[in-house]
Design a protein around this nucleic acid. Structure first.
Lengths: 161, 161
DNA sequence: CCATCTGGATTCGCTTTCCGAACCCAGATG
DNA sequence: CATCTGGGTTCGGAAAGCGAATCCAGATGG
């Protein structure tokens, strides 16, 4: 029986490697060049080079030439539109860490809404406008046609068809 | 200069290993036992055993004894309250995959609100009630006191203090 | 009583990935 | 022409991942 291929698995193929999400965190923060990213993340050079290549190949980062006056052409990494849509992933990770792995003192980074200054967080919302608790209580996963019926059942009766 | 330690990095220490999030996906779907998890994720036995131990040690999963009539005592893995709060992380990953890595046909799994039946997704919301686009446009990361000023600056003027 | 089955793992040997240190490259600077 | 700098590549050892084989203990059955 083949492993379940869902969108979580597919997304982790792109951003699930050891340093990928930390690299993206830096790019979201505006750190776009090799050495500063390396310092901020702690990733080894070779691994970082490979991750950047992978993320560019996956369409998450865009490698752009730039030239500061008095230097040769270099490259920096910008988020593509698809890359920017990973913001909720990073926000969700950060939020959980803030809540459950807080070090001494307050969290080191806050996200605020540029328009109103309010703190921003991820929330589970439904299309009718309801907001669910972060625990996912009241959330019902529905396997779609075509998927094996393995999901959502664990203590099914033995005599099932 | 030491790497930046933020809540994203800390959370990835817990759930950033290769199979961790897929294991949690299964537990969220109600698959709680070793072999079914192994089949659904494709993780090798030894790695799965280690991940389960790690997730229990991290307080994300709870290892519970159970005994079906006519068998010996066995264990299954349940989410702790902290583990359930990882739902937004999985939902955000799934949502990105649905949007950017869709296979042929519709996504294999849908999340619905048990109360109203509406599709559920993660959104970036601020405490004033505004909803931001998933790209994080309008989101301003604010480093807090104590953190190095490395963040959020990339093309700072060369002569800065 | 001994063999077999089953869920839940551990052990083993090999392969892949990760890692830090050293090195490379090319244009600016002195 | 030597040195500096940003942006990497190369290298050899360490760690993690992998599939296959094995183990364990309680039911089942001859």
């Amino acid at each position: 029986m083949p492993p379940r291929i869902c969108s979580v698995a597919r997304t982790l193929e792109v951003v699930g490697e050891r340093w990928s999400l930390l690299v993206l965190r830096e790019v979201f923060l505006g750190v776009r060049r090799f050495d500063p990213i390396r310092e901020a993340t702690g990733a080894p050079r070779a691994v970082l080079a490979e991750r950047l290549r992978d993320l560019v190949a996956a369409g998450v980062l865009d490698r752009r030439e730039y030239r500061e006056p008095g230097t040769r052409v270099r490259h920096e990494y910008h988020l593509t539109p698809a890359g920017r849509e990973l913001q909720p992933v990073l926000t969700a990770l950060m939020q959980w860490g803030d809540r459950h792995l807080a070090g001494p003192g307050q969290p080191p980074l806050e996200l605020r809404h540029a328009d109103c200054g309010g703190r921003v967080r991820t929330a589970l919302v439904c299309e009718e406008g309801h907001t669910l608790p972060d625990t996912g209580t009241g959330l019902r996963p529905v396997p779609r046609a075509g998927d094996r019926d393995r999901a959502t059942r664990d203590s099914a009766p033995a005599g099932g068809s």
